[in-house]
Design a protein around this nucleic acid. Structure first.
Length: 818
RNA sequence: GCCGCCGUGGUGGAAUGGUAUACACGGGGGACUUAAAAUCCCUGCUCAUUACGAGCGUGCUGGUUCGACUCCAGCCGGCGGCACCA
């Protein structure tokens, strides 16, 4: 053995041996004890892995190795989420086709993953931008289309004038484009949507069945935004018909519908507020108000999305000159418009109950509108009372509790046919159309009359054309392709045109966990083999960043549920357990290319090797916390590895008389408590404390004259998931015939070994530690107490005082209370 | 503003209501060495230095408890999410 441990030599040696032995290949059909460990697949934007990638893929590989050694048939795949904007932008800038730059990046990243030494089975990788993959993205679209979950509608969409592209709501932050920061415009366009809203309730219910962080569940609940209440129709008082009695014959009642979560406060509704954009405004507003209303609307339009939502300022609004009738009180109440009411939430109209809603209260104070208290319990002179209470000033509701009043009023509304119970969700349908090049083409064609027809499955993959300009024009780049148009006419007939939008990349990533599970049957015939799906799904452990809590993780769940309904899969939820890794920052700032503060791990990997770098990342702190990156401290991990090397070297080279000496009790106890600690910590992804436990064990072993072979072997096994290459190297020194440390079973903890002859009892006086004593494990309480009192430093404190109470905690401590 | 998470040495961080600061990094001191590197040992603060000594210490103020970093209440500070959601 060499004097010093040489990571670069050893790591290459074992990477080669693993590959030759095909150690990490997995036969999906034959696995007896399947464990699906999935880490969110990377986007191949840069050509190299950065520190964040290492932090995501290194420790999770360690976790998977741990699971494998525990006897699971672990499937840990990795692939590439390759469609998307950066490759397209790169193409725009340099003229390099995305196909080419993406393939190069993928090759580079794979090389680096191999250098990391992960246990990926590279025969099962995937790339969402390859036709073999995106044919299934298109297949999924067709399924959605056939089941009426895909539809097209004109919608005002967020349009980024700089990226010349449409953005999803979640891609606009504070009215700015998430990617480039340009202010987003509203632009009407024909867009494809998927009806995720049909699944709102199930997406909510499913959360209760999964082992996910509560925080993430809460974010999803928030995102789905369920509110229970009622819709109520308010009749609009027809002023025109009153003044022109001739037209009374044609008079039809006009209604405005509101949604409220507090129908019980209907008697307190003293005005209505519509969104400025509400179509009814033009219909019911008297002529003389048009000027003012128009002016107000212009003012609202001028405000950026940001200003409008900034708020907490004084609310603004204007009376439109019309009245509605409160169906409960039969009073005439004024109709206002105000920018705090949003056209795309609820019905775009609210009944204002200023006494019991903070916003309405504030609005009413500004414009001196009537405030009527209808729930007892607050002081409405000072503030709105939004809690529950008993109804007052509410005729037949008086005296009822809020929940009783709600039931009662809803029943009344339904009887009168002017309202009904309604559950509303904030979740909106998923806009999947993108006017971009680098994505999966939507498999739709249009006949000469403009009607949409699906491209049938036999024509999949519906290839992405290559004869295009990538320059953004605000139109889909595919429109420029002659080949695409020709292909469509050839198959469907003259005058037929292809859909030129591509799909959101979140569609690609909504089912990739199924595509990893491919075999001969599912390679090109079906999206997933039912037997494999049944066997491997749901994913046992899913690891990825918390930034995906509300988009990817909801879309993927929706798609899985839909496939369940289509009879394609047997589970409704794709990810049984979810864990988020923390974020690695650089001097407190998120690393990003644009900021130029990305830390390149390669020099450190070069200098210290993959094991040390990985272990250092794991030792930094709890995995879920992430942290600020700095390489101070990596030397500590390096020292640890060298010390490990040294004890194995010493054992190997020791004279025969010292080899395999009897195990000391002390070592046995430490060894077994370490087994326990490391096992529990690895299970919880508490890598930092698992490592410190191994460091403690090493300290004990270093003090021993000689160490038994068995102890050394166990040490190598415990270290294996954390430092795979070093572990193989030291394992080799201890195993007679050739075998891999990763084929060894994980050691089990023997609780009988940890039982000691003596125990240490801490002696406190008034809760302060004054001494500690060693007693026999079998010692009686009375003897222990007596011995404790004998301690000089205890006596000093007990002298001349009255003992009030004595607390004895079995095997731990004594507290004398004076 | 609302919701959630978190405040522990110079630093990263440990602690089922039971010895606060494990395991490391850095600084300081010491051992080894002609010297340096490497390695090993000691090191929270204050007062004592006769100690196997006392006091203070987990953001702040209280509370529960024999005993609180841990539980409860109220503040202060930081981070993340949502943004007038009717």
């Amino acid at each position: 053995m060499t004097e010093q441990y040489q990571p670069s030599v050893v790591e290459r040696k074992w990477q080669k041996k693993w590959e030759e032995a095909n150690l990490y290949a997995i036969e999906l059909e034959k696995a007896k004890n399947p464990y699906y460990c999935l880490v969110m697949f990377p986007y191949p934007s840069g050509a190299r892995l950065h520190v964040g990638h290492w932090f995501q893929y290194g420790p999770t590989d360690s976790f998977a190795r741990f699971k494998k050694m525990q006897g699971n048939d672990v499937f840990l795949p990795v692939g590439f989420d390759a469609f998307g904007l950066p490759a397209e932008n790169y193409a725009i800038k340099t003229g390099t086709p995305p196909t080419k730059s993406t393939a190069e990046n993928v090759q580079n990243m794979m090389k680096q993953f191999k250098r990391m030494g992960c246990m990926y089975d590279w025969s099962k990788t995937l790339n969402t931008s390859e036709p073999e993959y995106y044919r299934w993205t298109q297949w999924l679209f067709l399924q959605m289309y056939q089941k009426n979950l895909a539809y097209k509608k004109e919608a005002k969409v967020n349009f980024c004038p700089s990226c010349q592209t449409v953005l999803a709501n979640e891609q606009c932050q504070d009215g700015m484009c998430e990617r480039c920061g340009t202010e987003v415009e509203q632009k009407p366009m024909q867009q494809w949507f998927w009806k995720i809203t049909d699944y709102a309730q199930r997406l909510l219910d499913g959360l209760d069945t999964m082992a996910w962080p509560e925080k993430t569940k809460l974010m999803q609940r928030n995102w789905i935004g369920k509110s229970e209440g009622a819709t109520i129709k308010f009749e609009i008082k027809n002023q025109k018909s009153e003044t022109h009695k001739k037209f009374e014959v044609n008079k039809t009642k006009t209604f405005v519908e509101v949604f409220t979560t507090r129908p019980d406060t209907l008697f307190g509704a003293t005005y209505l507020v519509l969104a400025p954009e509400h179509p009814l405004v033009d219909e019911v507003m008297p002529k003389e108000h048009e000027g003012a209303v128009h002016a107000y609307r212009e003012e609202v339009k001028k405000k950026s999305e940001m200003e409008r939502t900034e708020l907490n300022k004084t609310k603004t609004g204007i009376w439109i000159g019309a009245y509605a009738i409160n169906p409960a009180t039969e009073e005439e109440i004024p109709i206002w418009i105000a920018d705090y009411v949003l056209i795309n939430y609820g019905t775009g109209a609210v009944m204002a109950v200023p006494a019991h809603d903070e916003r309405d209260y504030e609005f009413a104070s500004v414009y001196a509108l009537t405030v009527r208290e209808v729930v007892k319990g607050g002081n409405i002179k000072d503030a709105a009372f939004t809690e529950e209470g008993s109804a007052i000033n509410s005729d037949f509701l008086n005296g009822l509790s809020t929940s009783e009043a709600q039931k009662r009023i809803v029943a009344w509304l339904e009887d009168e046919e002017i309202g009904r119970q309604k559950i509303h969700y904030r979740l909106r349908d998923w806009l999947i159309s993108r006017q971009r090049y680098w994505g999966a083409p939507i498999p739709i064609v249009y006949d000469p009359q403009g009607n949409a027809h699906p491209v049938s499955e036999e024509h999949l993959p519906w290839l992405l054309p290559t004869d295009v300009e990538w320059k953004p024009t605000g139109e889909s780049p595919l429109k420029a392709s002659k080949e695409f148009k020709k292909r469509t006419e050839k198959i469907f007939g003259k005058g037929w045109t292809p859909e030129c939008d591509t799909m959101d990349t979140f569609v690609c990533s909504s089912f990739y966990y199924l595509r990893f599970l491919t075999n001969a049957h599912s390679q090109s015939k079906r999206v997933i083999d039912p037997a494999l799906e049944k066997k491997w799904m749901p994913v046992d452990m899913y690891i990825g960043g918390p930034e995906h809590a509300c988009m990817h993780l909801i879309y993927a769940r929706f798609v899985m549920m839909a496939l369940y309904d289509f009879g394609i899969v047997s589970h409704e939820e794709p990810f049984q357990k979810l864990v988020h890794q923390g974020l690695i920052t650089n001097q407190g700032a998120k690393m990003s290319k644009s900021k130029g503060n990305i830390v390149d791990p390669d020099p450190l990997v070069e200098k210290y090797g993959s094991d040390i770098f990985r272990m250092y990342l794991m030792f930094m702190g709890p995995y879920g916390d992430g942290g600020d990156f700095s390489d101070t401290g990596i030397r500590g991990v390096e020292r640890f590895m060298q010390r490990v090397w040294k004890i194995f070297k010493k054992a190997k080279e020791a004279p025969a008389s010292l080899q395999g000496a009897a195990k000391s009790k002390k070592v046995q106890i430490k060894l077994h408590s370490t087994i326990k600690k490391v096992t529990e910590d690895m299970e919880k992804l508490h890598f930092n404390t698992a490592i410190s436990a191994l460091m403690e064990l090493l300290h004990v072993l270093e003090k021993e004259e000689s160490i038994s072979k068995e102890t050394l072997k166990t040490f190598a096994i415990l270290l294996a998931p954390i430092a795979p290459h070093l572990a193989e190297e030291i394992w080799e020194t201890q195993s007679a015939q050739h075998s891999f440390v990763f084929q060894q079973p994980w050691p089990s903890f023997d609780s009988t070994i940890v039982i000691t002859d003596t125990m240490t009892i801490v002696v406190q006086v008034n809760g302060k530690m004054r001494a500690s004593i060693e007693v026999d494990s079998g010692a009686k309480k009375a003897d222990i107490l007596a011995k404790a009192k004998e301690q000089p430093n205890v006596q000093k404190w007990l002298e001349g005082k009255n003992m009030k109470k004595t607390v004895y905690v079995q095997g731990r401590l004594i507290n004398f209370v004076l």
